[in-house]
Each structure stands twice: as C-alpha cells, then as structure tokens.
Design a protein around this nucleic acid. Structure first.
Lengths: 198, 198
DNA sequence: CATCTCGTGACAGTCGACTGTCACAAACGG
DNA sequence: CCGTTTGTGACAGTCGACTGTCACGAGATG
C-alpha cells in the first residue's frame, strides 16, 4: 500500500502531504462529486496551497488513481499458480476468488473510491481504460498457462467476461451487508454464469 | 436516424445546422481527439459562430451522443419476439444477432463514432453510463419474458456479460475486414463463451 | 556552523468550456 | 403586408484546470 518509506524528515513530510491530498480528494469527491469540487478545496483540506496540489499530481483526475487497491497487480502470479487440471474458466474464477480473499479490510477505502469514481464520467472513463489494460493482462496470463505468448481471441473474450463478473460482484459487495465476503460473491457470479450458459 | 422532419424553412435550417455540427464534431474528434479540439473549431467547421454551438448542445460532450445508432432502442421488442423454447442465453444471443443485421451500412459512421469516443476518457465514461442503462434494459427484458417485472440478479449478470461480448464483437468488427458481418462476430462471441464455460 | 538544495506559498497568467445580453434579419402568423 | 417571434453573430464575462516564476525558509551536505 505504501512504498519504500525513506524515513528522512523531508521524505516523511512529502509522503504525508501526498497522503493528505489523496485522502482529502477521495473524501471530497465521494461526498460532493468530482466535477463540482475544485482542486483548491482539496488542497485547502489537505492543508497545502493550491499550487502544491499540482506539484504532486499532474491532473485533478490522477489523484484518484494513485492509491491502487491493487487487485490486478498480482493476477499473473496467482493465475499460473492454479492447478493444471482446471480449465481456463475455472482457473480464472479461482484466481479472482483467491485475490479477493481478505479484501474485507479495505472495504471502507473501496467504498469511498467507488463513490468518487462513480461521481464523474471522466473517472469512469479512466477506470475503463485501466480495465482494458487488465483485460490484456488476464488474456496474456491465460495464454501463458498454455505456453503461448500471443493470446488468442478466446482469451480476450474470457478476460472481458470475467472482468464484467468482477465488477458485478464488487458492486453487489459494496451494496450488500458487510458480513458477505467479496470472494463468495465473486465465486457466485462465475457459478451463475455457468448455470446460465449451460 | 432523422426524426419527424417538419419541412418549414426554419426547421430545415436548424436541422441542417444540427447535422453540420454533429458531423463536424465527430470528424474532428475522431481525427484530432476530443480534448484537443475546441468547440470553436467545431463551430467554425460547421459554418456557424462559436456561440451557436451551445445553443444546440448543452455541453461539448453531448454532441457526440445525439446521433444514436440505436442498437439498444429496439432490444425489448426484439427480445420478447424470440421463440419460447430458447433459454435466456440463447434468446439474448439471438436478439443481439438479429439487431446487428444490416448494421454494415452504418460501418463508416460507427468507425468515426468509435474513434471519437475512444479519444477521451470523458466520452468513454459517458458511453459506460449508457451501457449501464442498457444492462438494465436487457435485464428487464429478460425478467419480462419470464413474466416478472423485477429482474433477478442473474438477469443482470447475463446482461452485463452479453454487453461485454457485444463490445468485443463490435471492436473485432471495426478492426477486421469489411467482408465480415457484425452479426456473425456477435454470434461467434456467444458461441465461444459457451465453449469456454462448459 | 555555513552553504546549498528543494519543497512551498504567493501571484500572475493562459486557455477553453460555458453563460448573459443585445441587436439584426429572416421567417412566421394574421 | 406588417408586427412579432426566433435563430444568430458579436462581445463581454465567469470559472476552474493548469503553468511559470520568484523568493523564502527549513532540511540536506560538507
């Protein structure tokens, strides 16, 4: 979640400012909406000047995505670790479920992030672009498990579909009671789709 | 594609301006990108003043979506028309394929539209919002065929997944040779997914 | 401790989306 | 044909994202 924290006073200070800006931004965007919230207000809430905001982040949008709750980061590794006898669908499913494990701790963070992103088309679009990249990652992982480097078209289909399921599960998770695990909703979606298709 | 064309001189003129603005916007956005293209340039190209642009469209974004190539508009009708003995998956599949029929004529239009939308996160986000609405439409249609008004969760799952397949098919269509029909690619995606899942 | 570096605030400025207003001319309605 | 409505251009103005610059002061460096 935080990178190598050089503990020199100056580094500590800038890290603190960065975190303060991200916190302020996500909270304000989630509560008041991204578009109606000027960067000045974010800076003010973080206790720095307006100018400083843009010394930390190149655009207003970018502050939202600088705290990767990093679902996809370890996809490839988790995917190849799946048992050989699973077909692609079940391997992807198992990987998602595995990655979702212990996600509960992040719930509040994710809630804020979702509300923020959902508040503006720009952010939705940015996230969509990331999902495109994720689809590629997944497709490559699928190909890799078959010992191929270039993913076939089917791999992309599966990747896209599984990401759609992931998004559904995520929303159900956030909308539902805290007692329900993301992992179980995720598994549920994959099971449901299989039932629908067969 | 065009609505009830009142042929009074004034109405003709405003309709012409509207079309000119949409054409100019889509072409410029597709070629130069949405963000780098100021509304002034669009207006200029359409042969009207900058101010007039905003008399026709409330925002820069909105001009992009005022020409609905209307895939989803007739979904509900086409869906209930499907034979009773098809399960949900095949009914959705058949509906998509049916709607895609004769889409080839719109190819150039769709190409421009895609390039325009893909050029900016804002537009991607807006389109995403529309897709959310479409998912709802589909889910409701699925429920309706079962004689229910409130869609179950599974209906939304299928709706999301089929829209993911639709988007994949659309992109393959635009990236591939003109000889290939959208309908066949669409069918292909549904078939592939079934093969992947079972 | 002296010097240098670098993060920051303050300020001024650009650029583009969007709005209000006014006056003209063409189209509408009687 | 005449008064009214209405679309349009011209112009001025707001607002917010983002940039350049400068001077100051607190940390890094020797």
């Amino acid at each position: 979640m935080a990178q190598t924290t050089a503990s020199t006073p100056r580094a500590v200070s800038t890290a603190r400012v960065r975190e303060a800006l991200i916190d302020a931004a996500l909270e304000l965007f989630a509560r008041d909406g991204f578009d109606p919230t000027p960067t000045d207000r974010v800076a003010e809430r973080a206790g720095v000047s307006s100018r400083t905001f843009f010394r930390y982040f190149p655009t207003k949008e970018s502050v939202v995505f600088h705290r990767d709750h990093g679902f996809m980061r370890s996809f490839a590794a988790a995917y190849v670790a799946q048992p050989r006898d699973l077909d692609d669908y079940d391997a992807v499913r198992a990987t998602f479920v595995a990655l979702a494990d212990g996600f509960g701790a992040l719930r509040t963070r994710v809630e804020t992030y979702r509300a923020a992103v959902d508040s503006s088309p720009v952010l939705i679009g940015r996230e969509q672009e990331q999902l495109g990249a994720h689809a590629h990652t997944i497709a490559v992982a699928i190909a890799a498990r078959h010992g191929v480097t270039a993913p076939r078209d089917e791999a992309y289909t599966l990747a896209s579909v599984s990401l759609a399921l992931y998004q559904r599960a995520l929303r159900r998770w956030l909308d539902g009671p805290r007692s329900v695990e993301l992992a179980s909703l995720l598994d549920d979606e994959f099971v449901r789709l299989r039932a629908l298709v067969t």
